[in-house]
């Protein structure tokens, strides 16, 4: 049993957007085009926010924070989004009715809506991830299709899933290795160790959503959010 989590070191993040692009390619995240983008409809599961202060600019990559007590899953009327037993907040597009209640409930704006039909199935897409139709909500799933495949492979080989079998695309792509992914319950894992670090904080800690994405920063990091 695992509890998948992520640690993002803000002091290492250069804001290069490699994670964003890796995520887009991996998860067939649609490019909505300039017109839609201007209307505020960019879909970006991994989104690099800018925090500007007098001293410096800091970047804050924000995937879905995979809350352990997610506000979005409670309000879903049809069980299209729920916290799965391994802590991943699942989004089942085929069940979603598009009421956008989860978007209204998410304090991190991590959920995105397919306002129009942004793409069809075609070449150049990752065949492991379905293309979302119009009218449904989508979001970062911690690349859980990679978990499906890794688990299938391990099972066929008759072994257990080991650390490193399953890593998200953003963590893989980060050139400064600011993103660490793994099992938070595995005491020895890198991600569990970093999550316990005194530099670690979570976004909106006071909301009680208990995100499983941790951020690392020097202590002044606590000041914001």
């Amino acid at each position: 049993m695992a509890l998948w989590g992520m640690v993002i070191d803000l002091d290492r993040c250069t804001g290069c957007q490699a994670c964003v692009m890796a995520c887009k390619a991996e998860n067939n995240v649609p490019a909505v085009g300039p017109k839609e983008a201007a209307r505020g409809r960019i879909i970006s599961w991994m989104h690099v926010l800018r925090e500007e202060s007098e001293e410096r600019t800091r970047f804050l990559p924000r995937p879905c924070l995979q809350c352990d007590d997610p506000p979005c899953t409670k309000v879903c009327p049809v069980y299209a989004t729920y916290r799965n037993p391994e802590g991943i907040v699942a989004q089942i597009h085929a069940r979603c009715i598009g009421c956008r209640f989860c978007m209204a409930a998410c304090p991190y704006n991590a959920k995105y809506f397919n306002w129009l039909r942004y793409q069809k199935e075609g070449p150049g897409q990752n065949p492991d991830v379905s293309v979302r139709p119009k009218g449904v909500v989508e979001k970062c799933t911690f690349c859980h299709h990679r978990l499906q495949k890794a688990r299938e492979r391990a099972r066929a080989e008759g072994r257990d899933l080991v650390a490193g079998d399953y890593v998200t695309a953003c963590a893989e792509a980060c050139p400064t290795r600011a993103i660490t992914f793994g099992d938070l319950l595995d005491e020895g894992s890198e991600v569990a160790r970093l999550a316990r670090s005194p530099r670690a904080f979570r976004l909106g800690e006071e909301l009680g959503t208990r995100p499983k994405v941790f951020y690392l920063a020097e202590m002044e990091g606590h000041r914001r959010v």
Partner: peptide, 9 residues
């Protein structure tokens, strides 16, 4: 789709 409305992110 709902994109024809003014709603957005």
């Amino acid at each position: 789709g709902l994109g024809v409305t003014g709603l957005h992110q």
